Simulated assay, not measured.
Amino acid sequence: MKQLILFILLLNSATNFAQGGEKIKERIKAQKVAFITDKLELTSEEAQKFWPIYNEIEVKKEELRKESVLKRKEKKPEDLTEEEAKILLNEMLDIEDQKHELNRELVSKLEEVISSKKIIALMRAEREFDRKLLDRLKEFKDRRQNRRN
């Protein structure tokens, strides 16, 4: 009985942790949407056409990111044979090619919806958002580290 209770508590904790991670991802996504919308100064008509295209490509990019991470985590580099390393390297390069193709697809589709200037502004806004997100993460880690010390 104690084991069952312990198992349920652990399962509940894991579920809450996973849900917390999803909530954070959703908050970040919402902030990114607001940031990009502001930076691009999208009209409501542009936004209605822009976001479905952008979100579709982002989902595909996220799938590639996950695939890339899984491939890199399968084995440590030092545990790979030279042949396995070559195969992994080619798979990683293929994923990078697919990401590049997705960027081309995004630009191609967005050119029908917004100006080239706004597409360039989008690229800049994405980099700026990522940079700010990384800065905030670094600040958070620094604060956590300072609390521990």
Rank of each mutant, 00 (worst) to 15 (best):
E112Y: 02
K109E: 05
D94C: 04
E105M: 03
M92E: 10
L122C: 10
A85G: 05
I95Q: 07
N90F: 15
E101S: 07
L106F: 07
K86E: 11
I119D: 05
E111T: 10
K118E: 06
S115R: 04
S116W: 03
V107K: 14
R124E: 15
R124F: 14
L89H: 11
E84D: 02
D94E: 14
I87H: 06
Q98N: 14
S108D: 14
I87A: 12
M92Q: 12
L89Y: 11
E101V: 00
K118W: 05
H100N: 10
N90P: 03
L106M: 13
K109D: 04
D97G: 00
A85Q: 05
L110S: 02
E101P: 01
A125M: 05
K117H: 04
V107L: 09
K117F: 03
Q98G: 06
E84N: 00
K118F: 04
E112T: 12
E112F: 01
R104T: 09
E91I: 02
A121P: 01
V113E: 09
S115I: 02
E101T: 05
K109Y: 03
N90W: 12
S116H: 12
L106A: 01
S108Q: 14
K117V: 05
M123C: 03
L110N: 06
R124C: 02
I87G: 01
N103K: 12
K118N: 00
Q98A: 15
S108T: 14
K118C: 00
L110P: 01
E96A: 11
I95T: 15
L88D: 04
L93N: 11
E84I: 04
I114Y: 09
I119F: 07
K109L: 03
E96K: 15
S115H: 03
N90V: 05
M92L: 15
L88N: 09
L93Q: 13
N90E: 15
R104K: 15
L106Q: 11
I119Q: 03
V113D: 09
K99L: 13
E112V: 05
E101K: 14
K117P: 00
H100T: 13
L106G: 02
S116Y: 11
E84V: 04
V113Q: 08
I120K: 04
S115D: 05
S108P: 04
